[in-house]
Nucleic acid binder design. Structure first.
Length: 421
RNA sequence: GUGGGCGUAGCUCAGCUGGUAGAGCACUCGGUUGUGGUCCGAGAUGUCGCGGGUUCGAGCCCCGUCGCUCACCCCA
């Protein structure tokens, strides 16, 4: 029989690393929760049309990276490549935008993009994201950025930076685009690069080749085209970030791949990650809701890549410590008959809220003690015929090695004892 | 999608110019009656990613394929 492998390019998390993955994800989620965001659990597949209209047909994500298929009813379905469009769809569909604004939600889950896999770039990857819809305050922009910043701080991440810029409003961007295209037309570029520029001229700012960088050095910057209102908004964001001690750099050449971004846009870049260095990014989107058939509300949000944050944390060596054990007690039965007694006691202790486990399988005492040690439980207890007839057993502190005799009936005595420590 | 590197025990890897595989860690057991972490000893484990080919003979050479990885590209 041939072995079945996981599909190409997916990331899987299993013990012991899954503990770190869970820790990273929970830290990101906690940061959203303390800012008053509520959870949203959405489908991983949506009507293909949602992403075409929401993310933009000309984007790489939509034009060549989506997992799209026909379901049994002949509908075109797509595995979600990002989170914002689905959130908007759901908010509109359930009239959340008709209530108190802003609507503030977070989500966490798997996303799918059919790209060539690489370290930090997977075909199924995990994101934690937030969206705040229905208010265009610069304070809200900063709140969203601060959530990500707070999460990274809580993890102890250091070697990253926050890039921000403003993409202005549609009118500013149109004016800038005219001049930028004019500038690019005067450049001597190869065919592939011209094709990229035709789809999105801003892309050329992102090119890594030196000759293109030099050629683009004098290109007109979108930041210089902002109208008064957009410029004022962006200044306020900068001031507030400064007041909150959130370091940032203005990167007028930042490029985002999703069409819906407007105004404040940002990206967290980690220094130890190689090519896939963006650990999170997001921005404001003014037209998205109305494009999807909802009210004309502005929103702002981000997506953080859990896989990449985990990679970054590992690269910085801040997750090397094994997490604290979840177990209070590890039980060991001396022989077959006492095993049943131990299993019942274990069950009762768990009912009483004690986090406990026991040695399974036919292991010698030495091996069972080793298992107790590996489990990380704070206490262990060996139970044999003697203990059962005496009605008490020695509770051993695995750190100090000290033991103490404790009654086995009722088990509440043991449970209370363990909870007090 | 394009180009480069790699794929040997659970993990990290060694294996010279082709002669049918090793180390460390981890794991299991033991060091005289029922207590782990250190130490000592013993043991198990691989269709050498998969499929073809060249050869008397391939982990080592060739082709294909799958996967990983790095860069481009893209973005989380």
């Amino acid at each position: 029989m041939s072995k079945i492998q996981a599909p190409k390019g997916v990331s899987e998390y299993f013990p012991p690393r899954s503990d770190n993955f869970e820790f990273v994800r929970n830290t990101l989620i906690s940061a959203a929760k303390v800012s008053g965001y509520s959870m949203m659990e959405l489908p991983v597949f949506e009507d293909t049309e949602l992403f075409i209209r929401g993310v933009g047909e000309s984007t790489d994500v939509v034009s060549k990276e989506m997992y799209t298929f026909e379901d049994r009813g002949g509908r075109s379905i797509t595995l979600r490549p990002e989170g914002t469009a689905g959130v908007m769809r759901s908010v509109i569909e359930h009239n959340l935008d008709k209530g108190q604004l802003p609507v503030k939600v977070w989500y966490s889950g798997a996303f799918f993009r059919a790209e060539r896999p690489q370290a930090g770039r997977y075909r199924q990857f995990y994101q934690v994201g937030v969206e705040a819809i229905g208010a265009n305050d610069p304070e809200l922009d900063v709140e969203v950025i601060a959530i990500a910043h707070r999460a990274f701080m809580a993890l102890g991440l250091k070697n990253y930076r926050l890039d921000i810029t403003s993409l202005g409003d549609a009118e500013s961007r149109a004016r800038h685009r005219v001049d930028l295209v004019k500038y690019i037309d005067g450049l001597n570029l190869d065919e592939a690069t011209q094709a990229r520029a035709a789809i999105n001229p801003l892309r050329l700012f992102d090119d890594k080749r030196d000759e293109v960088r030099e050629a683009m050095a004098a290109a007109p910057l979108l930041l210089d085209y902002l109208n008064a209102e957009a410029a004022r908004h962006f200044v306020q964001v900068q001031e507030l970030l400064g007041e909150m001690n959130i370091p940032f750099v203005i990167n007028p050449k930042m490029v985002r791949g999703l069409d819906y971004y407007t105004g404040t846009t940002f990206e967290f870049v980690h220094q130890d990650l190689g090519a896939q260095s963006g650990i999170g990014g997001g921005g404001r989107y003014d037209g998205l809701m109305s494009d999807l058939g909802g009210a004309n509300l502005s929103g702002i949000g981000f997506g953080i890549g859990v896989d990449r944050v985990l990679l970054a944390a590992e690269a910085e060596g801040i997750l090397t410590d094994a997490g604290p054990s979840e177990l209070d007690l590890f039980l060991i039965a001396m022989n077959e008959p006492t095993k049943r007694f131990v299993a019942r006691a274990l069950n009762e202790l768990r009912n009483l809220g004690v986090r406990a486990d026991m040695a399974y399988g036919d292991r010698a005492l030495k091996g069972a003690m080793k298992a107790a040690d590996k489990s990380g439980a704070r206490f262990s207890m060996v139970i044999g015929d003697d203990e059962i007839s005496a009605g008490s057993a020695n509770l051993k502190d695995m750190k100090t090695g000290a033991t103490e005799s404790i009654t086995l009936s009722p088990l509440t005595v043991l449970a209370d004892q363990l909870k007090r420590r």
